[in-house]
């Protein structure tokens, strides 16, 4: 009898709290629906249209997608993007893990100083970072050419950003410097959260440092690694600002990436439908890669 009397009260309370909860969520939900879901749906729909400025969109079915896979510039951009991802993702993960494992157990100030140094390019505006790099790579008076020719390493100046043999490598180098900050901070936190009693017990049992890392720390920082893998992959796929500010996709399309080509088609040629078709393809690629990463992590 007592339970029967109590139930209606708690149900009302639960209902009230649920309503209050949804009410608190509403502003961000509206924002999310309006500025994330709606553009996403529009992106998919518009990819089936010949959509441009100042005239009605024309339904063309899969024509944008057909054109996409016959477009040599797009295929080149796809290849360049793949190169950036394949090089930058492992390098960022390995380098940031190495740096973190060296600095995470340093005394407070030293660890903070290193974190600060590596995080600096992340908080510095990408335009400012890019302008400095552009100056360093300058064909005529850049510091790399100056040092190279002064020390005899280079016979003559190299047009780093204007020569298709070097341009993509330069982009990847800059991308690495701006990408390692966040993973280092995340790894330092993850390593600090590793259960030290397990490490100490293993050391007492005679485990080497490598065994301690591989058997105890690595499994515990796996979720962080997975997160870093996913965000680094996505960031690498979305490499845009560097290309836009440094090379505009050149020379000879050697640094075109999918994101830059999307921008070019959408905002230079106003081919929104075609640009959005590329966006959909890029999203599918990232989704598949993320799924693979999750699967591999699950197996580990």
């Amino acid at each position: 009898m007592a339970a029967e009397k109590k139930n209606p009260m708690s149900k009302a309370l639960v209902r009230r709290e649920t309503i209050a909860g949804y009410a608190f969520m509403l502003p961000s939900l509206v924002f999310f629906l309006g500025f994330v879901i709606y553009p996403m749906v529009q992106c998919v729909i518009t990819s089936f249209f010949d959509a441009t400025m100042n005239r009605e969109d024309i339904f063309i079915g899969l024509a944008n997608y057909t054109e996409l896979f016959q477009d040599t510039v797009f295929l080149g951009a796809l290849r360049n993007t793949a190169v950036i991802v394949i090089v930058s993702v492992p390098v960022v993960c390995i380098f940031s893990l190495w740096v973190s494992s060296v600095i995470y157990d340093l005394k407070g100030a030293a660890c903070s100083a290193f974190r600060c140094i590596f995080y600096l390019p992340v908080v510095t505006g990408s335009v400012a970072v890019t302008v400095v790099w552009k100056w360093m790579f300058n064909n005529y008076y850049g510091i790399f050419n100056y040092v190279g020719t002064s020390t005899g390493l280079l016979k003559q100046n190299i047009n780093w950003l204007g020569d298709e043999r070097y341009a993509l490598g330069c982009i990847i180098l800059i991308l690495l410097t701006t990408s390692v900050g966040q993973p280092i901070v995340l790894y330092v936190s993850a390593l600090n959260n590793v259960d030290q009693s397990l490490v100490e017990a293993a050391e007492v049992d005679g485990a080497t440092k490598f065994q301690c890392f591989w058997k105890i720390k690595w499994p515990q920082i796996m979720p962080t690694t997975l997160y870093i893998l996913v965000i680094t992959t996505i960031n690498s796929f979305q490499c845009f600002a560097l290309i836009q500010l440094l090379t505009s996709g050149g020379p000879n399309h050697s640094t075109d990436t999918i994101m830059y080509y999307i921008y070019y088609n959408a905002f230079k040629l106003y081919r929104y439908g075609y640009g959005n078709a590329m966006g959909v393809v890029l999203a599918v690629i990232i989704a598949v890669l993320s799924a693979v990463q999750f699967k591999l992590a699950e197996r580990d």
Binding site: F35, V36, I37, Y38, P39, M40, Q42, C43, V44, I45, T46, A51, T52, M53, D57, V230, I234, F237, Q238, M259, I262, A266, F267, Y272, G275, N276, M278, G279, V280, L282, A283, V284, I286, A287, S290
Partner: peptide, 14 residues
Amino acid sequence: LSCLMVLSAVGCGN
């Protein structure tokens, strides 16, 4: 969410 990040970045329909 991975998809969303990309699609919302390019969701520039008119």
